[in-house]
Amino acid sequence: MTSIALQARRVTTAVGEFYGLGVDTAVATVTRPFHWREFVDQSWFIARVSLLPTIAMSVPFTVLVVFTLNSLLIEIGASDLSGAGAGLGTVTQIGPLVTVLVVAGAAATAITADLGSRTIREEVDAMEVLGIDPVQRLVVPRVLACTTVAALLNGVVCAIGLAGGFTFSVFLQNVDPGAYVGGVTLLVGLPELLLSEVKAALFGLLAALVACHRGLTVHGGPKSVGDAVNETVVFSFAALFVVNLVLTSVGLSVSRL
């Protein structure tokens, strides 16, 4: 019973610290000075480590969804609707999901490793002694950079998904190209695109907050940094899939109004 209570206390403390970091980050975001150079450097770094994995993952995801959907539509004689299905699946689900996988698996882990290394070398403590706020100096630029890059990556995934779906449907499954292009906007419009971008931005925001929290709360030696990196991936995936479920439900409810 004591062990269970101790574990529950640790979990509660960690959740409280995470929300505290989120509040501190929100306050520091609107507090001067804003470290633009750090923001640009982190944005470039995250884009560099995430772009190729994003492209590599978006193609098989698109092919899988489009192939399955087209097989069903061809069986019922509705292959002209393949563009509508590909557009809906790519914009509302494939784009945000691929974004969350790449951001959590590549960008967030790099942030955790960086901040964790700084923590065990006591660089963060030294910054606090010098009167420098680590949240404003380290966390805010990384969170905003991850949020921005995630939204941009979602646009890349959507573009690759629609182009890949067109290529696969037209050249391999003999779908009429005009019908595909004409059907893309049948179920997808500006509201669905905006919801997709909001999803991706929130995914980047949460993944970065989880990464910063785990990096700044590392205790011990180098092994603890590796453990924090692994925990970042697990926690980010769990949180982001829950957020995706909630946002999808809200978006469907709003679209019916």
Rank of each mutant, 00 (worst) to 15 (best):
M1V: 14
I4M: 04
L6H: 07
R9K: 12
R9W: 10
T13Y: 12
T13G: 11
G16A: 04
G22A: 11
A26G: 10
V27H: 11
V30K: 10
P33I: 14
R37I: 07
D41G: 09
D41H: 13
D41E: 12
F45S: 04
L51T: 15
L51V: 15
L52N: 05
P53W: 04
T54A: 04
I55A: 12
I55T: 07
A56G: 11
A56Q: 09
S58F: 02
N70V: 14
L73S: 06
E75Q: 14
I76V: 15
D80M: 14
L81F: 15
A84S: 14
G85P: 07
G89M: 08
Q93I: 01
I94Q: 01
V98K: 02
V98H: 06
T99P: 02
T99Q: 02
V103S: 06
L115G: 03
G116C: 11
T119F: 00
E122H: 15
M127F: 03
E128D: 12
I132G: 04
Q136N: 10
V140Q: 05
V143T: 15
T147W: 01
T147E: 00
T148N: 08
T148C: 13
V149L: 02
L152H: 01
V156T: 15
C158N: 13
A159Y: 02
A159R: 00
G161V: 09
G161L: 05
G161H: 11
L162R: 08
L162F: 08
L162I: 15
T167A: 11
F171C: 00
V175F: 03
V175S: 06
D176W: 12
P177D: 04
Y180K: 05
V184K: 00
V184D: 01
T185S: 13
T185Y: 03
T185L: 09
L186F: 08
L187I: 13
L187C: 11
V188M: 07
L190I: 14
P191S: 03
P191D: 00
P191F: 06
L194G: 06
A200L: 11
A200F: 07
A201H: 06
L202I: 04
F203H: 10
F203W: 07
G215S: 01
S224T: 09
D227S: 13
E231H: 14
E231R: 15
T232C: 02
F235H: 02
V243R: 02
V243I: 12
N244F: 13
V246R: 09
S253L: 15
S255L: 14
L257G: 14
